[in-house]
């Protein structure tokens, strides 16, 4: 039995400790906002926060998460009103929407470290998240808007 802390809740799961965190979240716990895209840490669709880092859950063995704090998109905010989520809605970023939870999880980590990111900062922080629909320009705008919202809310 493996004990995990996810979104401030404790879960006990009976899985092989080598199982990627992604499949524990999706198949065992029903937290399907974290997406499978490539299984190789190439696309970022599976990004979650492990102790605040934007970890790719598809290559992260669940054993790494034991005793650590995991946050998934479902736990980012109680009402879906994290400044980054608000900005995503305001800019109406999504097309198909599949990659966007991973994009948001990466963007949150960027904004924690950098309150006012430039285009170059965003390029460097977000190049690990693929959007096949090509919503990158709106993601950039949404990150800048989220930074503004955060400054206002602060």
């Amino acid at each position: 039995m493996i004990t995990l802390s996810i979104n401030k809740k404790t879960y006990n799961v009976d899985v092989d400790p080598e199982t990627p965190l992604l499949w524990v979240l999706r198949d065992e716990l029903g937290l399907v906002g974290t997406k499978y895209g490539c299984g190789l840490a190439q696309c970022g669709a599976c990004t979650v926060h492990l102790n605040g880092e934007a970890v790719r859950s598809c290559v992260t063995k669940v054993s790494r998460a034991v005793g650590q704090e995991v946050v998934t998109i479902e736990g980012l905010s109680e009402k879906g009103d994290h400044p980054v989520q608000k900005a995503w809605l305001e800019i109406d970023v999504a097309q198909c929407g599949y990659c966007q939870t991973g994009q948001i999880m990466s963007a949150v980590v960027l904004l924690k470290a950098n309150k006012n990111p430039t285009d170059a900062d965003i390029d460097a922080a977000m190049a690990g998240n693929i959007c096949r629909c090509g919503t990158y320009l709106r993601i950039r705008d949404a990150i800048k808007l989220a930074a503004q919202i955060e400054r206002k809310e602060a």
């Binding site: 399907v32 974290t34 998934t72 998109i73 479902e74 109406d92 966007q100 939870t101």
Partner: peptide, 13 residues
């Protein structure tokens, strides 16, 4: 705006 926007950004199934 996209009527499913909120579901998308909160990771609903």
């Amino acid at each position: 705006k996209n009527v499913e926007g909120k579901k998308i950004v909160t990771g609903e199934p």
